[in-house]
Design a protein around this nucleic acid. Structure first.
Length: 274
DNA sequence: CAAGATTCCTGGTGGC
DNA sequence: TGCCACCAGGAATCTT
């Protein structure tokens, strides 16, 4: 499940395409998330353009190609991989961008929860996949006060609030549980009930878990791969996610699990304050 | 307006 | 061993 650290790792492993020129475009024609079609015409119009840079906000990545931005959201099973054009096609390949120097950028997404779109680079932050998003906790100047303001007055559980991309961009189901474990805050707490001391702890928990995971190349549970095909190794550093019944790494209490907002949630009933 | 439920999709898994 | 129901999740869209 690509979240901020996985998308950032993809961005970094894709940086070698800077300076490449787009030479060809192929799409599967299959609809992606919520019936969204890959805009083949708009992509084809980019043939001849140079890929100048790669950007990210939250879980959304975009390539700057000439005056355009190619927006990619990996959904939950999406992969953006660099190949040789002669490499065998993986099933569920939906987009192929032929590049100079005998390279091909491929978007593969079995579950088709991902998104590929084209917009103008100048207005990329007005795109509907980006414009509603809250601050990026790594890139933007995000502070405990900003977190406090986002959570103020909210009765929804803090775990659910952390998943809300309009409040903070980039946290998914894995890092929501992990950040709360680091901050020693129970996931069931009302978001608006956190103390200012807890805002500092949770801010620290979010930032450190995301940064640590980026250092490890992200978390590979099953599908996730960087653009060069390598998996991420943060999985061995997870404190609670997918650890139901195992001893807490801090206090040895058995990790609890439940479903919140339809998502598996993991926490330590002893050292995370209710 | 906010919060919960439902929907999209496929591959892996657990139960029988 | 084979089959099938079920589950995983991000985010839009619905219902309450």
């Amino acid at each position: 499940m690509p979240e901020l650290p996985e998308v950032e790792t993809v961005r970094r492993t894709l940086l070698p395409v800077r300076g490449a020129r787009i030479t060809s475009v192929w799409t599967s024609g299959k609809a992606l998330r919520l019936g969204a079609r890959v805009p083949k015409q708009n992509l084809t119009a980019l043939v001849g353009q140079f890929i100048n840079d790669l950007h990210r906000h939250g879980k959304v990545l975009w390539l700057a190609a000439g005056d355009a931005a190619v927006i990619v959201h990996l959904g939950m099973s999406g992969q953006l991989r660099l190949h040789a054009p002669t490499d065998a096609l993986l099933p569920h390949t939906h987009v192929r961008l032929g590049l100079t120097d005998n390279r091909e950028l491929r978007f593969v997404d079995p579950r088709r929860f991902g998104l590929v779109d084209v917009t103008s680079l100048a207005h990329v932050r007005e795109h509907r996949a980006i414009c509603t998003m809250g601050p990026d906790p790594i890139c933007d100047n995000w502070s405990p006060d900003a977190l406090a303001a986002a959570l103020h007055g909210r009765k929804t559980p803090i775990k659910v609030a952390l998943l809300d991309q309009t409040l903070i961009a980039g946290i998914g189901n894995i890092y929501a549980s992990e950040a709360l474990w680091r901050a020693r805050i129970a996931p069931t707490r009302a978001a608006g009930s956190l103390t200012s001391r807890e805002h500092v702890c949770l801010h620290q928990g979010v930032v450190t878990v995301l940064q640590d995971s980026i250092v490890h190349g992200g978390t590979t549970l099953r599908d996730y791969r960087a653009a060069d095909g390598s998996p991420g190794y943060h999985v061995v550093h997870l404190g609670v996610y997918d650890c139901a019944g195992e001893p807490c790494k801090r206090c040895r209490t058995r990790i609890a699990t439940s479903v919140m907002a339809g998502r598996a949630t993991y926490w330590c009933p002893r050292c995370q304050k209710k």
